[in-house]
C-alpha cells in the first residue's frame, strides 16, 4: 500500500518534470507512435505480397507477435529505463544515493519513473491484438483463457528478467549498451526474431532462442499450442511458466550478487 501511494507520487513528480517541456513530450509520443506504426506498415506490406509464412497465416503471425509485444511493452514500461540508466549511475557513483533510502534500490528505481514512451507501442499492440483475435475467431474455452493468461504473464517475466540481467551486468563494470542493443535494438536486435514463427530459422538459431535467450517462450511456443499449429515439439508450449521461473530466479540472484559486489567494492 505504501509503495502504491509512493508510486503515484513519483508518477506525478515525473510527469510534472516532463510537462515542463511539453512540446518535447508531445514530439516523443508522436515519434514513438510513428515508429511503431511504420513497423506495422512494413508488416502489412509484406503480407500484401504473401498469404502466409511457414504455414502461419497473416493473422496468426500478427496474433503471435502482438502477444509478445504486449508482454514486452508492459515489461519495458517498468524495467527498461532503470536498467538502461544503471550503468551510468554506477559509473558516476550516483547509485550510492539509492542505497541510503529506506526502500530497496531496485524498487526505488522502478517506481521513480514512468516510461510513457512505451504507451504507443502498447496501444498498437492492443489494437492489432484485438484485431487479429477477431479475425482468428479462437474458441476461448476456460482452459484456453487460463493457459493464455498464464503464458502472457510468463512472457512478461521472461522479458523483464532478461532486461534485469543485462542491467545487473553493470555492477561488473561491463559496458552493457552493446549487449542490450544486440538483444533489443529495433532494427538488429535478437528480439526481432520472435516476431515470426521460429521454424523459419536454422536449428542453431532455434536452439539459441529456446535454451539460451528464451524469447521463443514469450509467444511462439504457447501461441502455436493455443492455435493448434503443426510445429515440432509443440508440447513445449506448456513450459513457459517453468522457463519464466528459472530465468526469474537467475535474474533475481544476479541482481543481488551484483548489489553485494557493489556493496563490497564500490564503483
Amino acid at each position: 500500500m505504501k509503495y502504491i501511494k509512493l508510486y503515484l507520487r513519483f508518477v506525478i513528480v515525473y510527469m510534472k518534470g516532463k510537462l515542463e517541456y511539453h512540446f518535447a513530450l508531445l514530439l516523443e509520443l508522436i515519434a514513438n507512435t510513428i515508429q511503431i506504426g511504420i513497423y506495422f506498415a512494413g508488416f502489412w506490406v509484406i503480407f500484401y505480397n504473401f498469404e502466409n509464412i511457414a504455414g502461419w497465416s497473416k493473422y496468426e503471425v500478427l496474433f503471435m507477435f502482438t502477444t509478445s509485444w504486449l508482454a514486452y511493452s508492459f515489461s519495458c514500461f517498468f524495467f527498461w529505463s532503470p536498467m538502461r540508466d544503471i550503468g551510468e549511475l554506477v559509473r558516476t557513483g550516483k547509485f550510492d544515493l539509492y542505497l541510503t533510502r529506506p526502500i530497496s534500490p531496485f524498487v526505488y528505481m522502478v517506481i521513480q519513473q514512468f516510461q510513457y514512451t512505451f504507451l504507443p507501442r502498447l496501444f498498437f499492440s492492443v489494437v492489432f491484438w484485438v484485431y487479429s483475435m477477431k479475425k482468428l475467431q479462437i474458441d476461448w474455452t476456460w482452459e484456453r483463457v487460463v493457459f493464455y493468461f498464464v503464458s502472457l504473464l510468463a512472457a512478461f517475466v521472461i522479458f523483464s528478467s532478461i532486461t534485469v540481467i543485462t542491467g545487473a551486468m553493470s555492477f561488473w563494470t561491463i559496458k552493457n549498451e552493446e549487449i542490450v542493443s544486440l538483444l533489443t535494438d529495433n532494427n538488429y536486435g535478437l528480439k526481432n526474431f520472435c516476431d515470426y514463427p521460429i521454424q523459419i530459422y536454422g536449428e542453431g538459431m532455434q536452439a539459441l532462442l529456446t535454451f539460451v535467450i528464451p524469447y521463443a517462450f514469450t509467444a511462439y511456443y504457447p501461441v502455436a499450442m493455443l492455435l493448434g499449429k503443426d510445429v515440432p515439439n509443440s508440447y513445449v508450449g506448456n513450459l513457459s511458466p517453468v522457463i519464466a521461473l528459472v530465468i526469474g530466479i537467475i535474474s533475481y540472484s544476479l541482481w543481488h550478487i551484483g548489489l553485494k559486489r557493489y556493496n563490497s567494492t564500490g564503483a
Binding site: R9, F10, I12, V13, K16, G17, E20, R101, P102
Partner: peptide, 17 residues
C-alpha cells in the same frame, strides 16, 4: 528531482519516509 519544484521532492520524501 532536477526538473520539478523542490516542494514536490519534499512531498515525495514525506511518503517515502
Amino acid at each position: 528531482c532536477w526538473d520539478i519544484p523542490v516542494i514536490e521532492s519534499f512531498r515525495l520524501f514525506k511518503d517515502m519516509y
